[in-house]
Simulated assay, not measured.
Amino acid sequence: MNSTKKNFSFPPKGYFANTYYGLFNLHPSASVMDIRRTYRELSKLYHPDTTDLPLEEAKQKFQKLNEAYGILANPDRRSIYDLQIGYSRWNVIQSPYDFSLSEEEEDGMRSGYLDATDRPLSSGELFALLLMGSTIVGCMLLAITIAWLRTSAI
């Protein structure tokens, strides 16, 4: 288990300090997993039943935390929110190539996906698409065959 503990400094510093990302102490390019992990840690820290903070302060911070997570956990809402705060995922600069990596390490870092929803289809999803496509083609062939048989019977 990782023994390093995140330092949640409040108020956060930086350009995005007054945003939901600042509340989570994360950069807007943070992954969905980072957001979820940080939310769980902070929710344990600020939940009114488990914190040493005064009840009203804990309630306010916990509600703000839930509001932020509701926006950042939903990809559509997050994209809209990013535009509102002036952050664009299209302008993300990728780090330069590290020549010191071995081939095995390099293979694991070849993912160019910025977010978890932007990924190739799994084999199960491809199979489902194949079934749906073959069903549509089969229905069309059946309809054409029935129409041809009815017209030839007249």
Rank of each mutant, 00 (worst) to 15 (best):
M1I: 02
M1N: 13
M1H: 13
N2F: 07
N2Y: 04
S3D: 14
S3R: 11
S3K: 11
T4P: 09
T4V: 11
K5Y: 09
F10R: 05
Y15W: 03
F16K: 01
F16I: 03
A17C: 08
N18A: 11
T19A: 05
N25G: 05
L26V: 06
L26G: 07
H27S: 14
H27Q: 13
S29R: 12
R37A: 14
R37Y: 11
K44Q: 08
P48T: 00
T50F: 09
T50D: 02
D52V: 12
E56G: 06
E56Q: 08
E57R: 09
K61A: 15
K64P: 01
K64C: 11
E67M: 13
A68F: 02
G70C: 06
L72P: 10
N74E: 15
P75S: 03
P75F: 05
P75L: 07
R77Q: 15
R78P: 07
S79A: 13
Y87H: 13
Y87P: 00
R89W: 11
V92W: 04
S95R: 10
P96T: 11
Y97S: 11
F99K: 06
E103I: 09
E105N: 10
E106R: 14
D107F: 04
D107N: 09
G108R: 11
M109D: 09
G112L: 14
D115V: 11
A116N: 02
T117P: 04
T117S: 10
P120C: 01
L121K: 08
S122P: 10
S123H: 04
A128F: 05
L129W: 01
L131C: 13
S134G: 00
M140V: 14
A143R: 02
T145G: 01
T145L: 14
R150F: 09
S152Q: 12
